[in-house]
């Protein structure tokens, strides 16, 4: 499992670069590097479905974010109580990590999960649904309510974007642009 540690350290370095760099476009590209590293980590952890989806979604996310940041100026204000805020944030995160390290002792060890629900899916998945890909049979047959709720959330997000983008009450441009907006 040494390659997994190397990938995680690479992702942490990428995240630090994405947070601390001054240029917005460089920051977005560094987030893309973190996402591609995450895709390889999913592939090592034996989750090929999630790896394919993460790879494709990462590219689309990168396109959208670059589209949002292109040719925009980037004013930074570092005024205010800089030292005080940093101190409080660092203290909070230190306490959070200590608590998490205590709480993680209660989890099952890495590599030995408790598969109480999943053993049923593994044994009866083929006879009950007929699909060879067990992840697909879980998301579309055993737990299809989850997918239905996901479809609702996606629909709401699309409607939200279209509502935000639509222009209200401006009649200068003419009919054609307005018809495209709807």
């Amino acid at each position: 499992m040494i390659e997994l540690y190397i990938l995680l350290i690479f992702m942490i370095i990428g995240a630090i670069v994405a947070i601390e760099v001054k240029d917005l476009l460089s920051s977005v590209v560094a987030v893309g590097a973190v996402g591609l590293g995450l895709s390889i980590a999913f592939l090592i952890l034996k989750a090929p479905d999630v790896a394919i989806t993460q790879l494709v979604v990462e590219i689309l996310c990168l396109i959208i974010l670059i589209r949002a940041t292109l040719k925009k100026d980037l004013p930074f204000s570092t005024s205010g109580r800089w030292f005080f805020n940093s101190l409080i944030t660092a203290g909070f995160l230190t306490i959070f990590l200590f608590m998490a390290a205590e709480a993680l002792q209660q989890l099952p060890k890495f590599g030995q999960p408790i598969m109480r629900v999943a053993s049923t899916y593994l044994q009866q998945g083929l006879s009950e649904t007929g699909a060879a890909n067990l992840v697909s049979s879980v998301i579309l047959d055993f737990r299809a309510y989850d997918t239905l709720g996901e479809a609702t959330v996606l629909f709401t997000a699309v409607i939200g974007v279209l509502t935000l983008v639509r222009r209200i009450g401006r009649k200068k441009i003419g009919e054609k642009v307005k018809a495209e907006d709807e």
Binding site: V57, P113, V135, R143, E150, L154, G160
Partner: peptide
């Protein structure tokens, strides 16, 4: 490996993309 968290994450990734697009808008 356990297929149940993989199915949960598979839907969560696509929701995350839609949420990111909403934030960008």
């Amino acid at each position: 490996v356990d297929p149940l968290p993989q199915a949960l994450v598979l839907t969560a990734i696509v929701i995350g993309l839609a949420t990111t697009a909403l934030l960008a808008a």
